[in-house]
Design a protein around this nucleic acid. Structure first.
Length: 483
RNA sequence: GGCGACGUAGCCAAGUGGUAAGGCAGGGCUCUGCAAAAGCCUUAUUCGUCGGUUCGAUUCCGACCGUCGCCUCCA
C-alpha cells in the first residue's frame, strides 16, 4: 500500500515519491497575524497537521515549515492591516504582531496541532527578500517604477499553471484596480514603496518600503527547504493569485521550470451555511470561543470527519454531534484502560485477537494512503471501538497482551496520527485530593447500595452529576469520569 | 465573463461501473435496583433533474436546475 495524494498541479492522484528518500520537506502558508484566529484557520492547520502526523507515522523524517506573515498587506484603502490594528489598539505594530503570534500558537497548541519545525516570520527575512527582488530584476523578470517593484507576468508563459488560468481571460472581466505604472495589469508587486504614514517599512535599493504579499513564501520556502521540495500546502482560496505567484517567482529566480514544490495539496474552506467562514463576512467563531464550548478533540474530529480538500460546513448541530461521537470513542478507551489497570502484567496476547485487530489498522492505513481520507480512517476507528467494546463486555479474562495491543492501536491511530485522544484521558481533573474525595463518596454510596438504600445512593450520584462527575456502575464496581 | 468545486437518509459526511462507510439524532430489545455505559436489531429499493454510453451508473458523458469558492486582503 503506497501513499497517494492529489496533486493540484496535475489535478491527479499521484503516488508520493519524496525528493530525498525517507524525508518529507513541506511548506504551508501560515496566517497573517493581525487578529485572533477562527475555526476556518483551524480547519487548514488541523488538516495539514494530520498530514504531517501521518508522514511521521509512516516513518518519514519531516521538516515542516509554516510561515507567519507579519509585514502586513495592503487593504483596498491602501491601509496596512497590521498598522490599522496597531492604531486601533495604540500599540507598536510589532507589539500587535507578537500578541497575535502568541495567540495563534496558544490556539494551535490547544488544538493539538504540532508545532512546525520552523515558523519563519517574514519581517526577519527582509534582507533575503531584497536579494530575491534584486535578482529578479537582474534576470529581467521584474522592473521598478517609483519605488515599487513589479513582477512581469508576461515573462512567464506558464504563469497561472496551478489555478489553470490564463492572464487574458482574467483581465477580460476582472474589476482590477489597475495601476497605470504597471506594464501589464496582471503584474504583481514584489516590493512596495511605503507612504510617509506607513509604519512598517524597511530600507531598500528602491527606497523605504515593504515586501509584496507573495515573495516571502518563495524566499522562506527556498531558504529552509531548498530549491525543490516535496509538498506545498495551504488554503484552497490562496491558489490564485498567491500560490501561482509563488511558483512564478521561484521558478524564475531559480531559472527552472521544476524548481519549486513537487506536490500541491490545498485545503477546502470551512463554511457556515455553505458560505465561507471569514473575517470580512463576520460569520466566524474564534478558536478560543470554540474551545470554550467544545473539546479540542471534538473540534479536530469535526474537521477531520470531512475530506480535507472539500468544504466542511459548520453548524452547532454538526459540531455537537462530533462532540458526542468523540466522547463515545473516549469512553471506550477509558474503559479499556481501566481494565488494563486491573489486569496482571503477565500474559501474552491471544494471537487470534491481535490478528483480528490488524484488519482495522489496515483499513485505517488504506484510507489515509488514499489522499489522507481521514473520514474513512475515522470510520475504521469507530468500527474498531465497537469491536473493543464487545470484546471487553464478553471476556472477563483478557490477557495484558491483548489489552495492550488494543490500546496501542488507539494510541497510534487516534492519538499519534489524528490527534483526537487527550494526553490524560483518565485524569482530566487532576489532584489526589479530588480523587480521594470522590473515591470516599463512591465507597459510601456502595454501602447504601449494599443496604438497598437506593434513594441515598441515587442522591450521591445526582449531586456528583451536578458537579460534572458522571458515575457508572459496572459489575466490577463503580467508576467515574468528568462529563 | 473566465477558472473551479459541490448537490448522498432528519442532521453531518465517506464512497464505488455491479447494486449505498462512519458519526449524531430517532425507534425496539438485552444488561441494570434505577440510571449511565455498552451490545444487538432498526432508520436511503436509493445517491439534484432529464437524457446518453453500458448487460448494468449514484459512480462515465451531455444538458439543465440549485448552491458555493476564486479572479480583490483572506487559511
Amino acid at each position: 500500500m503506497a501513499l497517494k495524494l492529489y496533486n493540484y498541479l496535475t489535478r491527479e492522484l499521484e503516488p508520493f515519491e519524496p525528493v530525498e528518500e525517507g524525508h518529507v520537506y513541506m511548506y504551508v502558508c501560515g496566517p497573517t497575524v493581525y487578529d485572533h484566529s477562527h475555526l476556518g484557520h483551524a480547519k487548514t492547520y488541523v488538516a495539514m497537521d494530520a498530514v504531517v502526523r501521518y508522514f511521521k507515522y509512516l516513518g518519514y523524517k519531516v521538516r515542516y515549515v509554516r510561515n507567519l506573515t507579519d509585514v502586513g498587506h495592503l487593504l483596498s484603502s491602501g491601509e496596512d492591516r497590521i498598522s490599522r490594528g496597531a492604531r486601533r489598539e495604540r500599540l507598536d505594530p510589532m507589539e500587535v504582531v507578537d500578541t497575535y503570534i502568541k495567540s495563534f500558537h496558544d490556539d494551535m497548541d490547544a488544538l493539538g496541532v504540532l508545532r512546525p519545525n520552523i515558523s519563519p516570520r517574514a519581517a526577519c527575512h527582509v534582507p533575503e527578500i531584497i536579494t530575491w527582488v534584486q535578482g529578479l530584476i537582474e534576470k529581467g523578470y521584474a522592473y521598478e517604477v517609483n519605488g515599487n517593484v513589479y513582477f512581469s507576468v508576461a515573462k512567464v508563459p506558464e504563469y497561472g499553471k496551478l489555478s489553470h488560468r490564463n492572464v487574458d481571460d482574467m483581465v477580460a472581466g476582472a474589476r482590477i484596480d489597475i495601476r497605470d505604472e504597471k506594464r501589464d495589469p496582471a503584474d504583481f508587486a514584489l516590493w512596495k514603496s511605503a507612504d510617509p504614514e506607513h509604519i512598517m517599512r524597511w530600507p531598500s535599493p528602491w527606497g523605504e518600503g515593504y515586501p509584496g504579499w507573495h515573495i516571502e513564501c518563495s524566499v522562506m520556502a527556498s531558504k529552509y527547504l531548498g530549491r525543490t521540495f516535496d509538498i506545498h500546502g495551504g488554503g484552497l482560496e490562496n491558489m490564485f493569485p498567491h500560490n501561482d505567484c509563488e511558483i512564478a517567482q521561484s521558478e524564475a529566480y531559480h531559472d527552472g521550470d521544476d524548481a519549486f514544490a513537487k506536490y500541491w495539496i490545498l485545503v477546502g474552506s470551512l463554511t457556515v451555511s455553505s458560505v465561507k467562514m471569514s473575517k470580512s463576512l463576520g460569520n466566524f467563531l474564534t478558536i478560543k470561543d470554540a474551545l470554550s464550548l467544545y473539546s479540542p478533540e471534538a473540534i479536530r474530529y469535526f474537521i477531520l470527519s470531512g475530506h480535507y480538500r472539500g468544504p466542511v460546513d459548520f453548524s452547532r448541530d454538526a459540531i455537537q454531534a462530533a462532540q458526542r461521537g468523540i466522547d463515545r470513542l473516549h469512553n471506550t478507551i477509558r474503559k479499556l484502560r481501566r481494565r488494563i489497570e486491573r489486569t496482571p502484567p503477565a500474559g501474552t496476547a491471544v494471537l487470534a485477537d491481535v490478528a483480528g485487530f490488524k484488519e482495522y489498522r489496515d483499513a485505517f492505513e488504506r484510507a489515509m494512503n488514499e489522499d489522507f481520507n481521514t473520514a474513512q480512517a475515522l470510520a475504521a476507528l469507530f468500527e474498531f471501538a465497537k469491536e473493543v467494546n464487545r470484546t471487553l463486555d464478553e471476556n472477563d479474562h483478557l490477557s495484558m497482551g491483548t489489552l495492550s495491543a488494543m490500546d496501542k492501536l488507539f494510541s497510534e491511530l487516534a492519538g499519534d496520527v489524528l490527534g483526537i485522544l487527550p494526553e490524560n484521558l483518565e485524569e482530566r481533573v487532576g489532584g489526589e485530593t479530588i480523587e480521594g474525595l470522590v473515591s470516599l463518596l463512591l465507597d459510601l454510596r456502595q454501602e447504601y447500595r449494599a443496604a438497598k438504600e437506593w434513594s441515598k445512593a441515587d442522591a450521591i450520584r445526582s449531586r456528583l452529576s451536578e458537579l460534572g462527575i458522571v458515575l457508572e456502575d459496572t459489575a466490577e464496581g463503580s467508576s467515574w469520569h468528568l462529563a
